[in-house]
């Protein structure tokens, strides 16, 4: 189900809950799938005693990956042209994340209608953890 340029308006937005009460096991699962075995994400002893953080924390790319799920649910499969983010705050076990895409522009690129989106993922305290943009091909 693709979006249509003719029915999109600046300021339209789409929101999803990405995760409720993030579990440490999901960090293990992401480590295994992605190949990023940094102990900061799975090894509580190393992270608290050596690295000096209060607990393990999520891979930025896990937050980005879940944010990407919100995007593809909104724009449709195979439609993304670009997706970029800054990781603005760490994500911790127990966090609940919501993510929003907001239409900033509907334009043309290489002859295709394209939507430009502002992307933001926040935690349960309203703190922004992922801030970025995406663009996607849409129907006319």
């Amino acid at each position: 189900m693709a979006l249509s340029a003719s029915s999109l308006n600046i300021g339209d937005s789409y929101e999803e809950c990405l995760v409720e009460d993030l579990k440490r096991t999901q960090l293990v699962q992401y480590s295994g799938a992605s190949g990023d075995y940094n102990p900061l994400h799975t090894d509580e002893i190393f992270t608290t005693q050596v690295a000096g953080y209060p607990s393990v924390f999520a891979h930025g790319m896990l937050s980005m990956g879940m944010t990407g799920r919100m995007l593809t649910n909104y724009v449709g499969d195979g439609r993304l042209k670009s997706f970029g983010v800054r990781f603005t705050n760490q994500v911790w076990p127990g966090d609940t994340l919501h993510s929003t895409a907001t239409v900033e522009e509907v334009t043309q690129e290489d002859g295709d209608p394209v939507v430009k989106l502002k992307v933001e993922t926040t935690n349960q305290d309203g703190k922004v953890v992922v801030s970025g943009y995406a663009s996607a091909r849409v129907d006319p």
């Binding site: 940094n38 891979h59 930025g60 790319m61 983010v85 800054r86």
Partner: peptide, 20 residues
């Protein structure tokens, strides 16, 4: 000190961008 710096962790991820 932190960030997994100091030779091991390679620091933290600040940004990531993809063009498809």
């Amino acid at each position: 000190g932190g960030g997994g710096g100091g030779g091991g962790g390679g620091g933290l991820h600040a940004e990531q961008h993809f063009e498809y």
